[in-house]
Design a binder for these strands. Structure first.
Lengths: 353, 353
DNA sequence: GCCGCGTTGTGTATCGATACACAGATAGAG
DNA sequence: CTCTATCTGTGTATCGATACACAACGCGGC
């Protein structure tokens, strides 16, 4: 009459109950509240379950009745494999997964593709809460998440009603490291993330209207520009090289092109360590000395930044991920939504005079 | 009377139906088979849904009734954040997620911690199939996966009834690259993965009984040993340095220790590019020339191996991940279970005479 | 001997949705 | 004008489990 795709038919709790000679509730309690049943009843149930090959309560049925499924949803606002391609996302997700493991909940990556069906996929995800990795202001997935009514957190932005934002003050941080990166600079460059979902590769100048819908890109750019203009320099001198994806090869290519161009930058502030390390390789290829000919800063203080002795902005994406997970799981947390950051000065920038 | 933790109460399909003045089935069809309802009925339903803030069918309820939830489970047999810490696992998972995105299914990482509750967590995961990342022969979660009766695939091993194994022929591959790595070697070393779940750091010699429960470690070790003994050399000369985790820092530390020790190796075959690159750094610190003083091989042909011009064994973990995902999702697939591999000879080994 | 309490087993009523079969309406065919 | 085929809406019967309330039982206290 109907045929849910369970082949061969999986035994049910009720069948275990009658095989064990107890009521269904006794079986249920054996799995969910072992203290609630006597030792001998539990033994009978376990034996019958083993006999029938009963793997335990059906997750979907349990989830329906209990109202939670024991899984945290993560939305990346990007194609799914982004999670494993972008080192920043990976660090963040490591923090999310730390908490999930500790709480014993699964971590579901929602399959975003950029197609129109993404909202449906969010709505159909069987999860207890959502963590949204920083995305664009106009990402329709954000509304889909909000519509579920589940607890949800956004990392770094954008803001939405009912969804706390967890991250650092990107603008202030960018201004702080920008001041160091651009000391004595004459042709400063920001090596940055995409402006919007279009992810176009482009080169902009500071006086152009930079209309980034990715809040992280926008805030960091504004901070870098603050650093430059607060020093009394004209905004038009500052350029922004937009890399479509956050990979060192991307940074290397773009940096190389500019370093070999008409007005080679003498200071590069990157929005990630990956882009900065790419620029570092480009500098080496061109034969530039760092920091003498070119100063360079990264962002995140990843392991690779330590190895390369890169001046960078230290933040812990892992901690932010953990924090997001705790909040999305409804965990009471006293910690503030604004995380710490600080500038780590190493050998790719000059000592202040 | 009962209170599933849905606060505030989420509207149900039935409520939408009565608000729209249609039957529940019409609403259901509107979401699951839009072609099944007339345009005007669909419009009424959509309007009522928007009015009430109905986010679409409840995933757990739908999953229960339909018999599938639209999610693929991934078991790592390791603490959860391993997925984002180990580059090999990340490459594999990128392939898994490629397929999940294309199929529109979610990707759930099952929270394994090593504690005794792991089997329960597998049983309680609301998924339609499992992909198991290579683990130890005695890993109890393998049985838990098998018990669910869901389609399941194991990457690289171990074998279990009903669960196909997808990967390469590790022993043959190791023998092939081992022959290159150990050409003219006198003190060969294998820089390898843990033997078992204990993940002890240790140094073994080839004549000792190496009792590895991780099949990948075992097979590759056997292959490297084949390469050495087939050349007529005594097994006792070959050593195995076991690194607890697959990180370059780990390989660097262990390699440095040995290179500065009594019998410094003059050929190192590593089980991953990460470990090999660590050893490369160690060699540089000791002042050894590669390949003149030390030959070195990696495994995977990751981006970093290309950059470092490292001789390595090329395989595509990403493709293997994709293949695993397709099979676990019940997709018919003609591809064989044995994937391709080949040796890529670069500058860290000597040209054959 | 009665009462209150803790332990343990069970019946009932859902959780929210969908597969299926059936019925009325509409339309085209002969 | 009748008959069959297509389109569209609805009622029924589950999917598999759990929250809750209640009942049976044993036991110590007075």
């Amino acid at each position: 009459m109907n045929h849910p795709a369970d082949n061969p038919k999986r035994p049910t709790l009720r069948e275990v109950a009658s095989a064990a000679g107890v009521s269904p509730m006794t079986v249920s309690y054996t799995y969910s509240q072992p203290g609630r049943v006597s030792a001998e009843a539990a033994a009978k149930v376990r034996a019958a379950a083993r006999e029938l090959g009963y793997p335990g309560p059906h997750p979907a049925a349990r989830g329906l009745r209990r109202g939670r499924v024991g899984t945290l949803g993560v939305v990346l606002g990007e194609r799914l494999s982004y999670a494993f391609d972008d080192p920043q996302a990976a660090r963040f997700l490591a923090g999310v997964s730390d908490v999930c493991a500790a709480e014993g909940v699964g971590l579901t990556l929602v399959p975003i593709t950029g197609a129109g069906t993404d909202a449906e996929r969010v709505a159909q995800a069987a999860v207890d809460g959502f963590v949204v990795w920083t995305t664009s202001d106009d990402d329709p997935v954000l509304d889909a998440v909000a519509d579920t009514g589940l607890p949800a957190v956004v990392h770094a932005g954008p803001h939405r009603r009912g969804m706390p934002v967890i991250g650092i003050d990107d603008r202030a941080a960018a201004a702080a490291i920008g001041r160091i990166a651009f000391t004595e600079a004459r042709r400063p460059l920001v090596l940055g993330f995409p402006l919007d979902r279009g992810r176009a590769r482009q080169l902009l100048t500071g006086d152009a209207l930079v209309d980034a819908t990715f809040p992280v890109t926008r805030h960091r750019w504004e901070g870098f520009r603050d650093a430059w203009t607060d020093a009394g320099r004209p905004a038009a001198q500052l350029r922004l090289a937009v890399c479509p994806v956050n990979r060192s090869a991307e940074g290397e290519t773009f940096a190389l092109e500019l370093l070999q161009g008409e007005e080679p930058p003498d200071a590069i502030a990157a929005m990630s360590d990956e882009l900065a390390l790419g620029a570092l390789r480009a500098a080496a290829r061109v034969g530039l000395r760092v920091p003498d000919d070119l100063t360079l800063t990264g962002w995140d203080d990843a392991d690779a930044a330590v190895d390369a002795d890169l001046t960078t902005l230290a933040q812990s994406l892992r901690e932010q991920g953990a924090h997001c997970a705790r909040v999305a799981l409804g965990h009471p947390t006293g910690a503030s939504a604004r995380h710490e950051w600080h500038v780590v000065t190493r050998s790719t920038t000059r000592r202040p005079q």
